Simulated assay, not measured.
Amino acid sequence: MTSTSNVLNIGSDTEELYYKFPKTSNPKAYFEFEFENHMRKLLLNGEKPKELDKNSIERFEATEIMRNGKQYYEFFPGRCATGVIISGCSFLPKDMVFRVKKKINKEHWVNDNVIQYKKNSMCHIQGIVSDCLQEECNDIYQYLSYLRENSNKK
């Protein structure tokens, strides 16, 4: 009996892993290691990744500002200012403000990237920014999955 299914084969049987499995009792560490190797095979065709240019990674940040007894939060591409309450890697940090704007009502916005919000709301703002950063990661993952599926059809 022969199989008619198609199987995606990445790499070769003799290909050596770039990294050796670290010895640990934490099963999550093995998942992260295997996921990294799998993504390396998919995105870099099994090649060793180039040295990371730390200046090429862009960030999105939110800062907390108190003026005249009012609470303000400012959102911008990372510049490591003082008062940062959350910062994260972003593929398009300039567009991240639009994601944040969708989650915060219009009446709070003072200008394009500053909101006035109730006092003691830092955790709430951190949650919103964190959700937006995660949404971007999910969008990138979905796009990569789409590319992978469509490359298999050829």
Rank of each mutant, 00 (worst) to 15 (best):
F35R: 15
F75Y: 09
G69W: 01
M96Y: 05
W109L: 08
N45V: 00
N45L: 09
N37Y: 09
N26D: 15
F35Q: 13
A62T: 04
P22T: 10
F33W: 12
N26P: 00
G88E: 01
E51I: 02
R67E: 12
L52N: 07
M96E: 10
K102T: 06
F60Q: 01
K28L: 13
P77E: 07
F76D: 13
Y72L: 08
P93F: 06
P27M: 02
G83H: 00
P27Y: 00
P49V: 02
L42R: 15
K48F: 09
K50V: 02
E36P: 03
C89R: 15
N105V: 12
K70C: 07
G88R: 01
L43K: 14
K54A: 14
I86R: 01
S87P: 07
I65H: 04
Y72G: 08
I86N: 01
C80V: 01
E32V: 03
D95H: 13
T63Q: 00
K103N: 08
K28W: 05
W109D: 05
F76M: 10
E107N: 10
Y18P: 02
G46S: 05
S56F: 00
N68D: 12
M96H: 06
K41Y: 13
F33H: 11
F31E: 08
H108Q: 08
K70V: 05
P93A: 11
I65T: 09
G69K: 05
E47V: 00
K106L: 12
R79A: 12
K50T: 07
D53E: 08
R79P: 01
N37H: 14
S87L: 01
N105T: 09
Y72P: 01
E32P: 03
Y72W: 04
K20P: 03
I104H: 02
V97M: 07
V110T: 02
T82F: 08
C80L: 14
A81G: 12
F31K: 11
K106Y: 02
V84F: 02
E107F: 02
S56Q: 08
Q71D: 06
T63N: 04
F76I: 05
F31N: 06
G46Q: 06
Y19E: 12
K28E: 14
E58T: 13
G46Y: 01
F91V: 08
E58D: 15
N105W: 04
H38Q: 11
I65S: 12
